[in-house]
Design a protein around this nucleic acid. Structure first.
Length: 653
DNA sequence: TGCGACCTAGTTTTT
DNA sequence: CTAGGTCGCA
């Protein structure tokens, strides 16, 4: 089988240029994923040990997809390629080596069995730090604290460096929050998403032995969506590929839409500086969209100043004009979208599964959903983490975490009195005070105070019961596989009973059903990962996004935000709310932010293969108010000849 | 300790 | 408008 079959010359170069640093600038729809997969296949075909290939993607789903396609090309050998996200790579490395990290002064050393904190855990931890420092702890403070902590970690700053940085802005108080946060996180034996990256990098920097294990191993390194990597990720991949120096990165500066999260286009620019001998390959033939769609999108993106010069072309048909429809209000907009969908459905030239509806903000989905429901058009909405954000699911996961990592205070606080066992706020405050006073963990305080004379006997007894429950769980966590353990846990803790005692069991009790679903998730995980532990399972869940779990819904319309549309494609794309205030969003103030909004629209437009319909609402109710949004200035940037402008009033006039 | 009334904030979020 | 969080009362 010829692995270069069907590739154009740029893609071919990308596949064949296996040695040395390679930067691939791949425009939208230019077949970059294809190039990476062929490259992996080509390496394997050339007899490279799959374990020596590292390919980093941005979602687990993308990783799995790539793996599947590579297996199709070269067989099961592709199974063993390390194809994962930056975060899961780091979690894997740290699960083995975290105890080799040198502890920072004044902080607890990290131990095997660490917890991974998601954004809400991080928020709670920030909140408790702000409170204990006597600082204001309103939503704005917490938000600012999170932002600075994340910034400091990505940029590799210690509290004193952050303080210097913050002084200029008059926000130096956050440096102390950061300091306490680091201390507390270490005491909890917990890593947030930024830590996973930053601590792995630090480990590689300070431990030659670990460094050489991985540098020796990773003969070929590849990174997809390179434009959305942050500083730490770039440093990491540079370090990991440092020995063999076969680093291959693929990205498109025009599709960088995560700068608000620390992604840095600078990485693309720096790549050529850091690797002066890098081979630069341009993929500029678009295979996805019609000529009309591509030229409209290109005309738009060319208005950005901070971009690399390039021009995509296509050999696809001209296709239909891009439609721009002004609707009376958001209800009319939804009616318009849905009636178009039904027309398409009746015309039978497209299945529902090939239709996507994109919007800037999640709130916009509501009007569309209502109308889809009304017309009984099946749809799937990609919406962040819904299942794992449910209270009952988080509670069970918190039990898991405490069983694996008793130092995890955030998780412990969550479950110490759920179900109610008479350890209320007052008792928790007492425990916390004792823990802080003696420099021990919250769980340590539980086991000390359950025997302390000073504590009233009733509470001592309750603490004792809870403590032995958790110790028994800890023992059980290593004795059984994840599904069995989750089941064991929800029974032993009384949590399942607590859920069903009021609501009963079965369909009518969604909370109990969700908890059961978690057992099913654990079963699936254990099947895919034999010999995995409860710890592996908690890490897996923490690093899962629900785009990952989204099953291919065959015959339904997809509803997604512009951000989650990246990397996907649809025959027909509706882009709603293309109006000033939403796109660009009213919150943007700088040119850089405006350019990112333009890229966002560009990403949305270039998802369309055959038809692209942009809509706006003349008036829109937003936060209970009616806003009269002018059309998006971006529309003016698309030459009028490329647009077919229409209007739809529905009942809304 | 738990529930309900009140208040407030409200982009995007691969991990 | 509405969801989530807080506060106060029973």
């Amino acid at each position: 089988m010829n692995l270069l079959n069907g590739l154009n010359s740029g893609q071919e170069d990308a596949v064949l240029q296996t040695d040395g640093p390679v930067l691939v600038l791949a425009g939208a729809g230019s077949g970059k994923t294809r190039a990476i997969i062929h490259r992996v296949a080509y390496l394997l075909d050339g007899g490279i040990n799959p374990r020596r290939i590292l390919a980093v993607t941005f979602t687990n789903k993308a990783a799995e997809e790539m793996r599947g396609r590579a297996i199709k090309m070269v067989g099961d050998v592709a199974e063993k390629v390390l194809l994962c996200t930056f975060h899961s790579l780091c979690a894997r490395i740290l699960r083995v080596h975290i105890e080799k990290l040198k502890p920072m002064s004044g902080r607890q050393p990290y131990k095997m069995g660490f917890s991974i904190y998601d954004d809400s855990d991080k928020k709670r931890l920030c909140l408790s730090c702000l409170k204990d420092l006597g600082q204001p702890h309103n939503a704005d403070s917490v938000k600012a604290a999170r932002k600075w902590i994340s910034y400091a970690k990505i940029e590799g700053l210690e509290p004193e460096n952050l303080e210097a940085h913050l002084e200029r802005r008059g926000e130096s108080r956050f440096a102390r929050v950061y300091e306490l946060y680091l201390e507390r996180a270490a005491a909890c034996n917990a890593l947030d998403f930024d830590d996973l990256l930053a601590l792995t990098l630090r480990l590689l920097d300070e431990n030659e032995e670990v460094l050489s294990i991985y540098q020796d191993r990773f003969e070929y390194c590849m990174v997809d969506e390179f434009q959305d990597t942050n500083r730490t990720q770039y440093e990491l991949i540079k370090t990991l590929s440092g020995k063999h120096k076969n680093l291959f990165v693929v990205g498109d500066d025009d599709q960088s839409i995560y700068s608000f999260r620390g992604a840095n286009i600078r990485n693309i620019l720096d790549f050529e500086k850091d690797f002066p001998d890098a081979v630069v390959i341009h993929l500029d033939q678009n295979y996805r969209s019609t000529e009309n769609i591509l030229s409209a999108a290109s005309a738009l993106i060319e208005k950005n100043r901070g971009r690399m010069e390039k021009r995509l072309f296509t050999e696809n048909t001209q296709g239909e004009q891009v439609v721009f429809c002004t609707c009376a209000d958001e209800r009319a907009e939804a009616e318009f979208v849905c009636s178009e969908i039904q027309d398409i459905q009746n015309g039978c030239d497209s299945e529902l599964g090939s239709i996507g509806v994109f919007y800037r903000t999640n709130a916009q989905s509501r009007a569309i959903e209502d109308e889809l429901l009304k017309r009984q058009i099946p749809y799937t909405m990609v919406r962040g983490h819904r299942f794992y954000e449910r209270k009952e699911v988080k509670d069970v996961i918190a039990y898991l975490k405490v069983a694996v990592n008793p130092d995890d205070e955030i998780a412990l606080e969550r479950i110490i009195n759920t179900p109610p066992r008479g350890i209320g706020k007052t008792s928790i405050d007492l425990l916390k005070k004792h823990a802080r006073g003696s420099g021990i963990s919250l769980f340590g305080a539980v086991s000390e105070l359950m025997n302390a004379e000073s504590v009233r006997p009733a509470l001592r007894k309750k603490l004792g019961t809870f403590c032995s429950l958790m110790q028994a769980l800890r023992a059980a966590s290593t004795a059984m596989g994840p599904p069995k353990f989750v089941e064991h846990l929800i029974n032993e803790t009384g949590y399942f009973h607590y859920l069903i005692e009021d609501e009963g069991e079965g369909e009518q009790n969604p909370r109990a059903e969700n908890v059961k679903e978690l057992v099913t998730v654990a079963r699936g995980f254990a099947e895919r990962n034999p010999n995995s532990s409860a710890l592996d399972f908690t890490h897996h869940i923490a690093l899962l996004s629900d785009v990952d779990q989204l099953k291919e819904q065959e015959d339904t319309v997809s509803l997604l935000t512009l951000h989650s549309a990246k990397g996907l494609e649809f025959d027909v794309v509706f882009l709603v709310g293309v109006e000033a205030g939403l796109l660009p969003h009213y919150s943007v103030s700088t040119r850089e932010q405006l350019e990112e909004e333009r890229r966002l629209l560009y990403v949305g437009m270039t998802r369309a293969k055959k038809m692209l319909i942009l809509t706006r609402a003349w008036r829109r109710s937003i936060f209970g108010r009616t806003a009269m949004n002018p059309g998006s200035p971006f529309i003016q940037e698309i030459p009028a000849v490329m647009l077919k402008t229409t209007a739809f009033y529905g009942d809304g006039i």
